[in-house]
Structure formats: structure tokens, C-alpha cells
Simulated assay, not measured.
Amino acid sequence: MAAISNGIFNDALHTISQSLLIPVMIILAIFFIYALINMGVLIAEYYKKRKNNIDIKNIISQILSFKDQKNPNSLISVIENSKIPQTHKSVLTTLVNNSNVSTEYRESLALKMVEDEGINVAKRLEKTDIIAKIAPAVGLMGTLIPLGPGLAALGAGDIQNLAEHLLIAFDAAVLGMASAAIAFTVSKIRRRWYEEELSNLETMVDTLLEIL
């Protein structure tokens, strides 16, 4: 009776594990395609950054030139004509438009908007970070699942079946590692860019708070 129960349990586990092979391979393919798309987007962002070549010191100097002036429209024009990201322009123009409120409220508003930008950056990095961390594990699943039938085929002397299952296992391992490597590279480079942009935003916000 116990042997029958163990046999049923083992068969159930084997069925479950084998049924995961197709979903795992589909997930690996999605990870790889998504990572490749993000690599292409990263290259486009790189050339865009080289073309724009933001001079943060010049922008800060222009903002400081309005220290003794009470002309928010001109200051907003300087911000809008700069090459900083549109979301950063929104933060700075919001601060300028709230120049007549209390200092405490303006500082709280600035802190909140900068924190929101940090959260948005984390969201943009989230997907590639997840792929970089779990793609190797999914690839390992795709490697191990076909080995069961492959070993069974080896025991039965079916070399052709064994070769087919080993090929699936190798493909899964390669897809998982490739997806993780590409996603890690994309996240690493983007994180450095976004940290630099956030640092520039904080500097510009502090400059605006100083002159308002």
C-alpha cells in the first residue's frame, strides 16, 4: 500500500515538473526578448544623451541670474528651454509657480517631488532588475526539467531522445544566463545615469529654493 502511494506521489510530482517545461521556456523567451529590446532602447538613450549634452553648471548659473529679479515667467522660460528631462522641468516649474507660498511648504513640496522622482526611477529599473535576478533561476529550471526524461532515455538506450532533451536543457541555460547578463548591464548603466540626473535635480531644486 505504501509503495503504491509513493508511486502515485512520485508520478504526480513528475507530471507537475514536466508540465512546467513549456511555461518556463516561454518565460525565458519573453525575458530574452525584453532584455534585447531594453538594450536597444539603452543604446538610443545613450546617443540622445550624447546629442543633448546637458551642461548643468550653465543651467544653474542661469537660474542664479534671477536671484534679485521677480520675473517667474522668464525663469520658467529658461527651465523649459533647457535640455533636462521633462519630468525635472515639471518639478522646477512647479516650485517657481509656488514662489509666493511659505518657505516651509515650498521645501516640503520640493522634497516630496524629488522623492517621487526617485520612486519613478526605481520603477523604471524594476523590470530589468527582476530579470537580472531571477532569469538564472528560471534557466536552471529549464535545464533540470528535461534531464529527467533524458536520463530515462539514457537508461533505455534511446540516444536520440537523450540528445533532444539535452539540447532543450542547454538552450534554457543559455537563454537564462544571456537574459540575466543583458538585463544586469542595462540596469547598471541606467542606474548610474538616473543617479546622476537625480543629483542634478536636487542641485537645481536647492538653487531654486535659494533664490525664491
Rank of each mutant, 00 (worst) to 15 (best):
S102N: 10
T103K: 14
Y105C: 02
E107A: 12
S108Y: 06
L109G: 07
A110V: 00
L111V: 10
L111C: 12
L111Y: 11
K112E: 15
K112N: 15
M113G: 00
M113Y: 04
E115A: 11
E115P: 00
D116G: 01
E117H: 04
I119D: 04
V121L: 04
V121G: 01
A122E: 12
A122R: 08
K123L: 14
R124D: 04
L125T: 05
E126L: 11
K127L: 08
T128G: 14
D129P: 06
D129M: 01
I131G: 00
A132Q: 07
K133C: 07
A135N: 01
P136G: 03
P136V: 05
P136R: 00
P136I: 01
V138K: 00
G139C: 08
G142Q: 07
G142T: 06
T143V: 12
P146S: 11
P146N: 07
L147F: 09
P149W: 07
P149R: 07
G150M: 09
G150N: 08
G150H: 05
L151T: 13
L151W: 13
A152T: 10
A153R: 04
A156E: 11
A156V: 07
A156F: 08
D158E: 15
I159E: 09
N161A: 15
L162S: 12
L162N: 02
L162F: 14
A163C: 07
E164L: 13
E164C: 10
H165S: 13
H165D: 12
L166Y: 03
L167S: 15
L167Q: 09
A169H: 08
A169L: 08
F170M: 12
D171P: 04
A172H: 06
A173M: 13
A173W: 09
V174R: 05
V174C: 14
G176I: 02
M177L: 13
A178G: 10
S179N: 10
A180T: 06
A181G: 11
A181H: 03
A181I: 10
A181V: 12
I182L: 02
F184W: 11
S187F: 06
S187Y: 06
S187T: 10
K188I: 00
K188P: 06
I189L: 11
R190A: 01
R191A: 15
R192F: 11
R192I: 09
Y194L: 08
